[in-house]
Design a protein around this nucleic acid. Structure first.
Lengths: 363, 363
DNA sequence: AAGCACGGTCGAATCGATTTGAGGATCGCG
DNA sequence: CGCGATCCTCAAATCGATTCGACCGTGCTT
């Protein structure tokens, strides 16, 4: 019974490959492949033999790179977080969506490749990974602007893309939020409480990420879609804010700075509407430090519907967005793109959630 | 002059490949490859021709998968975050290290693949990505336990690995922290302020992630290394805590729960030493809500050295660890592994940073 | 007994690029 | 005019697996 020639690890001084295993086991490469993948009929005895040979040679299992080339799939989804990681990850919204996304994609056997978004306006706007990483699909988390350079690059590479809270376009999948209407409802709620003078604390207008009051002329020159829609939502209610304050990022400290600026100004508004809960909680903290009572002296509202335990005993009035569902929806859109379809744009609903930081207008 | 046969996109109904471009341009595949990679001498005119052909065919650039197979490298570093993303990402420590890591690796042309660590004790402890993703190196962020199943799996696959704050072992690179000594110094600092009764709030002991007081018998049965070292550091100071409270994760709300439990117990300690700043700030909040003055009635200290603006006007006494440097150090370790070397274990220094939440012991 | 279905195995093609050593053209110089 | 040096270009091998179609026995059907 001629056993196959007793060459263990024929040429490869390196790691053994499937071919080595096959030759050691005395079977063909295809059979060896079958033994591992299980994608075809194979006799139990044969599989045993292959597995034994693999163990003997110290074969570490099929090399993913080979499989990937063959299948044309890397199993990797590139997720562009819309800002420097340091900032993005301090934002519970990004995190929760990312978490939902990782879970959903994980169940589909896909991994998430983290790609930093545009951070410093000075730096080149597109991370090299966007240009070269082997990803099956890309996700632009957290908005795109008009003529977004990252989106352009992905288009040029022909990478199917899901844009979250961006502008719906025919060649990309879109998962949006009904945040514009949500903001309008929030303002109307405040109006029904008697408020007439409103200040707004917004997210960044564009890559410059300004930090300070914005003149009315610029109110409709917002590049970043999230900021734009939420501001438009406020204006839709038919009011004219006494002030609009732009912050560079959705962080408590920026909210606090904005809060101090707004609440210590000569004509203080009775309500401050913020584009995120973190900004809003910063404003609440500023108010407290200024000795103002919330909501007796000033009402503060946010957006996102986060749990902020350290704001206790206050509960922020907010517009809640379905964070986990957002992640799952993006996951489904990714699956759809992978299947070669172009999913319909989705717009998730938001719900007004009154808390203890808003109340009747003073006087 | 016989132009190559005018077949645009010869067979491939799919995307054009380098071969298609080459045949359209009337050159060989190798030459076409050179035109893109630039790794060899090529006439300017030829390159032009290849590039023109590529443009004409709508060639989207070299397929990363092909390149990866050839080079044997995916350019991807798998980062296992030590907990469910949702929780991990609410921890500024993980985030800042991850941020530093992504930057460092990004400069080296490497991408970060996010791999969820063990979350639910019920679930299988190893994410499928650990078993199958095509990564060049893996990083276990945030500690490993003894006989960590994830580490075992990576070993079996032969993936070079960096372990952060784990047990130094010969076949993995290690980046550690001198947290044990830091904790001892912290306790000594409190002792010098006259404190004699200490309570400890710890991170999770093991995958079970208990939530409550731990009997002294179990104090040396800690699986999770980070928890173990920091607890040992406290014991090194020669004290016996009046209580040790285990929390399931480093989050403010868990600190708060622990704080209520510890501070409303019959014999209240004068100092609470926490294994993270988030836990410590939870304890501060609990103290405030219980009407206790910090640090007059009780001193609270943490670990990590974070900026926690919303704790204002208090500044947490803490032991600061060099977060950005940690990320960079891990990055260097990864580079070293990729170069085929095994880097020496690194132990980063921590520094005591007194704040306003600790003071002389009462009475 | 011929024919058929089927489980099991194998050979060869394929995925898409990189890389090496060989070879051809051109040029300069003796 | 010949020889060598230089500069490009190309054919072929390679990376490591998957997969399709062919092939070959068995065992069962009619």
């Amino acid at each position: 019974m001629p056993e196959s020639p007793a060459r263990r690890c024929p040429l490869s001084s390196q790691r053994p490959t499937l071919a080595d295993v096959a030759s050691t086991a005395g079977v063909s490469v295809s059979t060896a492949s079958l033994a591992f993948s299980g994608a075809g009929p194979i006799a139990a005895a044969t599989r045993e033999r292959v597995l034994a040979a693999a163990a003997e040679l110290g074969y570490l299992g099929p090399n993913p790179l080979g499989r990937q080339l063959r299948s044309g799939r890397s199993g990797i989804v590139g997720v562009v977080v819309g800002d420097a990681l340091r900032r993005s990850f301090r934002d519970p919204v990004s995190i929760q969506v990312l978490d939902g996304l990782v879970s959903t994609l994980g169940e589909m056997g896909l991994g998430v490749l983290l790609i930093p978004g545009p951070s410093d306006p000075a730096e080149p706007p597109v991370d090299p990974l966007v240009l070269s990483a082997g990803m099956d699909v890309a996700v632009l988390l957290w908005g795109s602007g008009t003529h977004d350079p990252v989106l352009e690059a992905l288009r040029r590479r022909g990478v199917p893309t899901v844009v979250v809270e961006g502008i719906p376009e025919p060649d990309v999948a879109t998962v949006g939020l009904d945040d514009r209407r949500g903001m309008t409802e929030l303002v109307q709620h405040l109006q029904s409480l008697g408020h007439e003078s409103f200040a707004c604390v917004t997210l960044a207008f564009d890559r410059q990420r300004g930090d300070g009051f914005v003149e009315p002329e610029r109110w409709n020159e917002v590049v970043w879609q999230v900021t734009r829609r939420r501001l438009d939502g406020v204006l839709d209610a038919g009011i004219t804010p006494t002030a609009v304050y732009e912050t560079p990022a959705s962080l408590v400290e920026h909210g606090k700075t904005a809060g101090f600026a707004i609440l210590s100004a000569p004509q203080r508004p009775t309500a401050v509407v913020c584009q995120s809960d973190l900004l809003a909680s910063g404003v609440v903290l500023a108010a407290r430090e200024l000795g103002l009572r919330v909501p007796d002296d000033v009402s503060v509202a946010g957006f996102d519907g986060l749990d902020l335990p350290w704001l206790a005993p206050d509960v922020l009035t907010s517009v809640a967005q379905p964070l986990a569902e957002k992640g799952a929806t993006v996951g489904r859109a990714v699956a759809s793109l992978l299947a070669g379809e172009m999913p319909e744009p989705v717009e998730l609903a938001v719900t007004l959630r009154p808390g203890t930081t808003t109340g009747p207008a003073p006087r």
